[in-house]
Nucleic acid binder design. Sequence first.
DNA 1: ATTCTGAATGAACAACCATTCACTCATTGT
DNA 2: ACAATGAGTGAATGGTTGTTCATTCAGAAT
Lengths: 218, 218
Amino acid sequence: MKRQLATVPRRRTAPPEERREQLIQATIRSVADRGLADTTVATVAQEAGLSQGIVNLHFKSKEGLLTETLRYLADEYRNACREAAAVAEESPAAGLQAMVDLDFRRNICARDKLAVWFAFWGERKFRPTYRRICAERDKSYDDMVRVMCARLCEQGNYPDVEPALVADGLSALTDGLWLDLLVRPESMSRELARRVALAYLADVFPQHFRHPVATIRS
Amino acid sequence: MKRQLATVPRRRTAPPEERREQLIQATIRSVADRGLADTTVATVAQEAGLSQGIVNLHFKSKEGLLTETLRYLADEYRNACREAAAVAEESPAAGLQAMVDLDFRRNICARDKLAVWFAFWGERKFRPTYRRICAERDKSYDDMVRVMCARLCEQGNYPDVEPALVADGLSALTDGLWLDLLVRPESMSRELARRVALAYLADVFPQHFRHPVATIRS
DNA sequence: ATTCTGAATGAACAACCATTCACTCATTGT
DNA sequence: ACAATGAGTGAATGGTTGTTCATTCAGAAT
């Protein structure tokens, strides 16, 4: 009978899946506070408290580690989207609200993760693999929001509203707000960003969304 | 009396200012089609048709060249903003329209330049110099748009509109649309982006902006 | 023509970094 | 206990890249 009860104190060897996760987390930290340009295999290993060689042991190459890190974030986001999709089944308006809530939830748009997103976005154009991973994420987002907007237009009375245009707008607005959260944290907060996004929805769908109360400071 | 008439054929030596411009243009091209990570002093020099050493001759270092390139783009943008500011003096609505027109004008949001913007944006958090240059640009934009929105709110009847919120929104929306233009050119065009931005203004200020005609393809 | 200046060159150098691999040692099975 | 396994290590390696500098040479001054 194996003594598995006492929590593992500090195993020197760990199952591959655990090490991979550990290295991905270390990569996020390293990119978040050093930038992609200054993130080396050495900094990741140091951040993880492991040796250099381990990166090439668990991932084929540094590039492999970076790719898996991006995929990790993309998967996390898409999983969160599923919840909103479920909500939207019953009510498209509630679905849109859920999307906005999700986009500015702490664990999704933590500054560390935003830093990583934008580091990779800058390289999207030149790395087909990054492009593919990001494109999948974008597409599932756009498809969802477009459908929600279309259904809301049907059930409400919105003659002027073009669902595709609104979906593009909300998507772009969210990306832009994320950028603000990352580079100007002193003038943008998750809460304010969420209100800006909801204000947008209130402008477009006044029958279904109330304007958020104005609580401006500064 | 100097013969300055015949256009210079192919001088081996050129005035410093000309070389600097030439190298900055080469940097934009290199970053735009190789990415910041794969842009080396050698690629820039090659793109400019000059030798390696010239970068360190005209700029102290590679970092200096990159910084000057960013400043070049920032200055270009701010100069374009001045025109819109002049327009806004007479009519805030026309000023906002001018801002949107400007943001999606060919020479401002050329794909080459967008690629450079986002390459640097990814590094903003880690390079104080980049941060300063970008922050100045952002601030002049935000201040301008905020004032235009505030004046429009006064002269129109918009009890629910919060100028600061709208300014943040338009700014974020524009950044997000730029991102789309860069990474998904197949589904976003300058013209469509412009319409999305104007649709936003029409939603917020219905008395001053018409909804753009829907000409959706695909 | 001849000299002088400094713009431009590009080979050489030094620093950095991803990758490799011979070796160590914790863990598991017998 | 002992042997076998393979996860983990980290020094060494080779490739890449920013920077330097002795040298070249075009254009201006004399």
